[in-house]
Write a protein that binds this DNA or RNA. Structure first.
Lengths: 348, 348
DNA sequence: ATGAAAGCGCTAACAG
DNA sequence: CTGTTAGCGCTTTCAT
């Protein structure tokens, strides 16, 4: 573990000043160094195995080229594609990503935020901040907020997923297939539940259908996905065994949809003949299910990429926030697979 | 965006020296400050909204409290639990995690490694380094290497998954259920394929069974999981339609197992009555499949946690590597679900 | 228990 | 195009 060489060492060996050597490794555009000198410096650096010390650089320049992503839980199946969308975009601009989990805990959330500023990270992407968090008093750094509904902020840039529109698309599709008694499986955070429930009620109203409370089921979420899954199945089986069971089920996320698929099989219901199932998230698990699960895609990868682009723009243009925040909305798309279809002929 | 307060500002307001103030925020044990002074400093800091600048701290102390994880692809379904295992362990010790993707590209891998040293990260967890990478010339920092086989290093600490043992467990189980013609689905990297194939052949030999080449199928991996999935299904259907189809299939990863499940359903084969299927990885997709997929768990979460612990030990004990590297092996476990069972009665 | 002083390695003016 | 200089904000001896 011998001390690693510094810029001075390189400069000395290359017979130039520290400053010139620095320019060769600098990210800033104005790196005006003669080819010859540059070559000499690079050679010296190579010989010494020099690597710039970014701690020192950022102390001076106030830039770490590190971005923070604060999400609830990386273990959530839809996190990876979001992250990848962000990373791919960032990588193109030489930024790396630090990922924090909040586990839906406002305290951890705050703690993470503090770590973000301590570490001098250059930007922040924050997923669905908890209500306890006052967005207006977020640390003062470029940021974009990811929300799962059309919640706009007058303070910060946002990228939102039009989940309400997604629910509508799923229901519209199911209705167009002849289903008029559609069960809905709700779960997740309070706002998620209320939003999607409202979308469901709105749709029923506008389609002139009669709402049946029995068809609306809330699945309380547990910390571990497996636990939620087990719980979901118990509730779903009730729905399926009820005398007047729905001909279709819309699950507000794929885990619930998958649970429905599994219970249908166990209960001896043929999908989609006896029951159509539509999920939401379009996880790989949906594609790989048997039968493959029809699902509403939230385009997490694109959401990530868009958020990253938005953030980089902020970072690169000093006065970007002066015209007020930018609120972007990403549409959902229905991916029709084998778990859904027209309602069966009226049973004689 | 006004300049944020520094330690001197805090010290001034609290009527002490910079040094004393520093001790209050320092991580090092020897923080000997009188309660009274400490309180005063904390109060001043609070009033000013002071937050330590870690760039400055690490320039001086050579510690960033940031760890690098270099994996192939975060989008891989088994990445999240690995990451979470690492993060949970690190968080307990005040470290955060920076995640890099290599996409199985040796160039990206090297590039990431350079970023690790530039950023002065305190440690490195490296997943299955490519053959092109000479492990002995990894950057000189605490590190642990994650391998998917019992590959030991005489240079670095490793945490390995006993996948070969996992394959054996799956086959032993299937054989104990009466299956003696077991198809195997291979895929992934070259070394993964060869290792698992050898395990398969070894098992067949020791069990005194006759190897049939037709039962061994290689699924070439594509970049996108969906593409691999489609490709897999085409190859699997051949296996299922062949005159002498196997009574069981062992898939060397869950994606392949899920593909088999889906094809079985499409081909009208009842699982597990007509065909038993066992996967490997124990993804959530396995649990949520219909029927739920029996799978070999590689305990990714624990692997991550163990790697993180190993790394932290190295970091905290100067001379840890003097006694030579530590090589840990994590066993696989078979999780029996509904996709596998005894072989059907001999067909009359 | 506290303070004074000397940098860590680099960047950012500014001069030439 | 290149060199000089002055710190960035903190940690770390070394005194007191």
């Amino acid at each position: 573990m011998k001390k690693s060489p510094t810029l001075v060492d390189v400069a000395k060996l290359a017979n130039t000043s520290k400053a010139t050597a620095a320019r060769v490794f600098s990210r800033s555009k104005s790196a005006n160094v003669r080819q010859e000198t540059k070559a000499r410096i690079l050679e010296a650096a190579d010989k010494l195995g020099y690597s710039p010390n970014l701690s020192a650089a950022s102390l001076r320049s106030k830039k770490t080229y590190l971005i923070a992503l604060c999400i609830h839980d990386i273990t959530n199946p839809s996190s990876p594609s979001l992250i990848r969308g962000i990373q791919d975009e960032l990588a193109q601009h030489g930024y790396d990503l630090v990922v924090f989990n909040s586990d839906w805990d406002p305290n951890k959330e705050k703690k993470n935020l503090r770590a973000v500023v301590r570490n001098q990270l250059d930007g922040l992407i924050l997923q669905d901040p908890s209500d306890e968090l006052d967005v207006s008093e977020l640390p003062d750094l470029p940021s974009v907020i990811l929300t799962s509904n059309e919640v706009f902020s007058t303070v910060r840039n946002t990228v939102s997923t039009d989940t309400v529109g997604g629910v509508r698309k799923a229901l519209t599709y199911l209705h167009s297939m002849g289903h008029d008694r559609i069960g809905i499986l709700l779960g997740g955070s309070v706002s998620q539940i209320t939003n999607r429930k409202r979308a469901y009620l709105d749709f029923y109203k506008s389609a002139g259908l009669k709402v049946e409370d029995r068809l609306i089921v809330d699945v309380p979420f547990k910390t571990r996905a497996s636990d939620t899954f087990v719980m979901a199945k118990e509730l779903i089986v009730d729905l399926m065994r009820s005398p007047q069971r729905p001909s279709a089920i819309f699950a507000s996320n794929d885990m619930l949809g998958l649970a429905a698929l599994q219970m249908a099989q166990i209960e001896g219901l043929q999908v989609p003949r006896d029951l159509s199932v539509v999920g939401m998230d379009d996880l790989f698990s949906a594609e790989s299910a048997s039968p493959a699960l029809t699902s509403v895609s939230k385009h997490r990868f694109q959401v990530g990429a868009q958020a990253a682009r938005n953030l980089l723009n902020q970072i690169n243009s000093e006065h970007s926030m002066e015209k007020g925040p930018i609120n972007e909305l990403v549409e959902c798309t229905l991916v029709v697979r084998d778990s859904s279809g027209p309602i069966a002929e009226v049973d004689v």
